[in-house]
Computed example of a mutant assay.
Amino acid sequence: MTFKTISSQRHQLAEGPYWCAETARLFWVDIPMQQVWCWDSLTGEHQHWLMPEKVSAVFATNKKDVLLVVLATRVAVFDCQTHRLETLCTLDDDLPSNRGNDAKVAPDGSLWVGTMDDNEVLCQGRLWRITADGQKQCLLDNVGIANTFAWDESRGCMYFADSMKGQIHKFPYPGFQDVRGAAAFAQTPEGSGPDGSAMDDEGALWNAQWDGQRIVRYLPDGSEGAVLKLPFARPTSCAFGGPEGKTLFITSASVGLEDQLAEQPLAGQVVALEVEQRGAPSRPFQLI
C-alpha cells in the first residue's frame, strides 16, 4: 500500500475528515488544538482557522465559504471570510464535563452529533439529532465515547459506535430505536476501539480502530472483508473522496505516542490511499 501525505502537520488529534466534492477540498479538525484545517487538492494549499474551544467535526454547507462546526459545547456556523461564529444550538448544557465528538449529516439532512465525557471516565454521552433550525432531539443517552456515523438506506440501517465499549451497533433507519441491548454488529479486539467510519457504495463499513493500527472493512453481515494495516497506531477516522470517490482519506493522532513517534513518523498526519471501492459522497449541511 502506498500512502500519500495530505498534511505533514503533526496533529495531536486529527479527526473528522470531510471531502467537499464541489470545491475538491478536504476538511478536518485537530480537537485539542481547537483548529479546523483545509487542503485544496487543486492547488495543494493548506489553511486553518482557530476556534474558541475544542472542535470535533466540520462540514461544508450550501453557502459559499461557510462551514458548520461541532464545538465542545455547541454546534455553530463559521464564516471563513469574516471569522464570524454563530451558534446553531448548544449541546449538553447540564453536563459541563461533556463535549461534542463525532458527527455526520444524515440522509434526511439533519446533523447527528455524539457527545462524551471529555475526561473519558463517565458513561454520560448522548446522541443528538439536530435540524437546520437548531431544534435538537436526544436519541440515546448513557453513551461512553460516541463515534461512527454511517447510513445504509438500501438496507434500512445506520451504524453508531461506542468506543468505550469497543462496539459498533446497527440501528434501524429511518425508524431509529435503541438496539444496544442486542448483539453488536462488530466488537473490536481487546485494547482497541472503533473510531470514525466511512461507507462504500457496496454497503461495507470502513472503520478506523484506535490503538488497533488498522482500518477494517466490515461487510453488511458483520464479517471482515478486508483489513488495512496502517503506519500509525491511532487512526481516528476515514472518508472517501477524490475525483472518482476511490481515495480514502485517513486522519490520525500523535497524542499519547510521544515515546513511539520515531517508529511512527506518520502519526498525527493526514494521509490518503487509493482503494478499489467507491465511497458514498459526503453530505453538506443545508442552512436556512
Rank of each mutant, 00 (worst) to 15 (best):
F232G: 00
N119R: 13
Q269W: 12
S97Y: 12
D141Q: 15
Y159A: 05
S192G: 13
D108C: 05
T90N: 12
S254I: 03
D133W: 07
E263C: 15
A146G: 15
T73C: 03
T247K: 15
E45H: 14
G225T: 05
L219D: 11
D211E: 14
D118P: 00
G193E: 11
W112Q: 13
S192A: 14
L95K: 06
E53S: 00
T90Y: 12
I130C: 03
E45P: 03
D201S: 07
D211L: 14
Q12Y: 11
Q12D: 10
G245K: 15
Q12L: 10
K64P: 07
T188V: 01
V255K: 04
Y18I: 00
P194K: 05
T61R: 06
P284H: 08
D162T: 04
L85F: 03
Q187P: 07
K170W: 03
F27Y: 14
E153G: 08
L95F: 12
Q135Y: 04
D118I: 02
C157F: 09
R283H: 15
I31S: 00
L26N: 11
V55W: 03
G225V: 02
T251K: 02
A267V: 07
M51W: 07
D133V: 13
W128D: 03
A150Q: 04
A239L: 06
I145V: 15
W19P: 05
L205E: 09
C20D: 15
G144S: 09
A184M: 12
K165F: 12
L205Y: 09
D195L: 03
D108R: 08
P107A: 11
Q135F: 12
D93M: 05
T5K: 08
N101F: 11
K229C: 07
I6E: 12
L95E: 06
V143W: 05
D162I: 01
K104E: 01
N147M: 09
V113K: 10
F149E: 05
F240Y: 11
M51Q: 09
V36D: 03
W206S: 08
A161K: 12
Y173H: 10
T5E: 14
C20G: 04
S56E: 01
A14R: 01
G245R: 09
L111N: 11
L228T: 06
R99L: 02
F78Q: 00
T82C: 01
D200A: 07
A280I: 02
E202N: 12
T87R: 10
P194H: 11
F78M: 01
G241I: 06
E86P: 04
